[in-house]
């Protein structure tokens, strides 16, 4: 009886393999959220098929469009990797936005003032400063949690606002572009600007971001550190009894995820705005949380998720222009998506 049962196992039952099941539930959630997005388009008086056509066209229609999509994917990917690692260890850093701005500020200051003529050195110094600042901003959260057990969700969230206000103050006062009346921060030394690929108009930071994917995958799966992170995430008590210092791990995870957010901030500054600019992030630090969860805290998954979100957002802008639809519809899709994903997860677990 059990044999025939296995042979005629109905297709609608979730597959046995956990990996396959997780993949299928992600895919199902993607499709469902696209359907809901279509319904939203209908409600807004549009035509779903042509709207999605416009979205795809907006993301992939030309080399430039692809480039814009990639530029958007870079910060999401970099921050998503760091957050995925931290979330694996149940360190819920939701402060990537603030860490990004601190990284942009420090990296920007170096790129504006450091008198180095040699481009690679200047860029390297700027990136280093940005990562250090992001890590330090995350490190505050780490110290509070490791030393006094303060909940990192609250501190990292609130430090976002502090960081954004510091950044805003700087571009308004001490670092305002000379002679500019509004919120324009100073431009960086042109030598510090990242080289840009022809046609695609993508800064070279994209290579750095892609190179981080296998590195993160290796760190998560093949190193003692990655194993300790998983231990901490699965069972912090047992990890501690096996000699894993949760304080050190929390610190390390906050420093790494903060440093990567800082890196994203520097790359935005050196490769996109080329000045200190409040517009370098449209809440990317928060979107990166979605990216990390969507990618199931897995390096390859984060890569796919970052591209998916970038396609939606950059294509969506084009769509809202050509189809005359509100951009909010596009912004709604990832939100709907996460809800479906959670439902699918529940169902898949049975």
């Amino acid at each position: 009886m059990s044999v025939s049962q296995a042979a005629t196992r109905p297709l609608w039952l979730p597959p046995q393999s956990r990996r396959l099941r997780a993949g299928l539930s992600s895919l199902g959630a993607v499709l469902l959220s696209l359907v809901v997005g279509g319904v939203l388009v209908l409600i807004a008086g549009g035509e779903p098929v042509s709207a999605y056509g416009a979205l795809i066209d907006g993301a992939f229609g030309s080399p430039y469009a692809i480039g814009q999509m990639l530029v958007l994917a870079v910060p999401l990917l970099i921050m998503g990797l760091g957050l995925a690692l931290a979330f694996r260890g149940r360190v819920y850093n939701v402060g990537a936005e603030g860490q990004l701005f601190m990284g942009a500020l420090a990296g920007g200051v170096v790129a504006i003032f450091l008198p180095v003529a040699f481009d690679p050195l200047l860029i390297a110094a700027s990136i280093f400063a940005g990562m250090a600042a992001g890590a330090a901003w995350g490190g505050i959260v780490g110290v509070l949690r490791a030393r006094w057990g303060v909940n990192e969700v609250i501190t990292s969230l609130l430090l976002n606002f502090v960081a954004i206000l510091i950044f805003t103050y700087c571009v308004r006062r001490p670092l305002r572009a000379p002679g500019s009346p509004d919120l324009q921060g100073r431009s960086i030394d042109p030598n510090a600007a990242l080289p840009v690929l022809p046609d695609l108009a993508v800064h070279v930071g994209v290579f750095l971001a892609i190179a981080l994917v296998p590195l993160a995958a290796y760190l998560m799966a093949r190193t003692p550190f990655g194993m300790r992170v998983r231990m901490l995430g699965f069972n912090a008590e047992a990890a501690r009894a096996a000699g894993v210092s949760s304080r050190r791990m929390v610190m390390a995870l906050m420093l790494i995820s903060g440093g990567l957010a800082g890196l994203a901030g520097v790359l935005q500054t050196l490769g996109v705005s080329e000045r200190l600019d409040l517009g370098i992030s449209q809440g990317y630090g928060f979107t990166a949380i979605v990216v990390a969860l969507l990618g199931r805290l897995n390096a390859t998954g984060v890569l796919l998720a970052a591209v998916f979100i970038a396609v939606l957002q950059s294509g969506g802008q084009a769509m809202s222009v050509t189809e005359g639809l509100p951009y909010a519809i596009v912004l709604a899709i990832p939100g709907v998506f996460v809800v479906f994903l959670l439902i699918a997860d529940r169902l898949a677990r049975g």
Binding site: P224, M227, R230, M231, F234, N235, A238, A242
Partner: peptide
């Protein structure tokens, strides 16, 4: 179960938890 082992890891991984690296 709470302190001695990590349910989500394999037996082999659990046997080496305290001597990684």
């Amino acid at each position: 179960y709470r302190r001695g082992l990590i349910r989500e890891l394999s037996v082999a991984e659990n046997l080496a938890l305290d001597r990684l690296g």
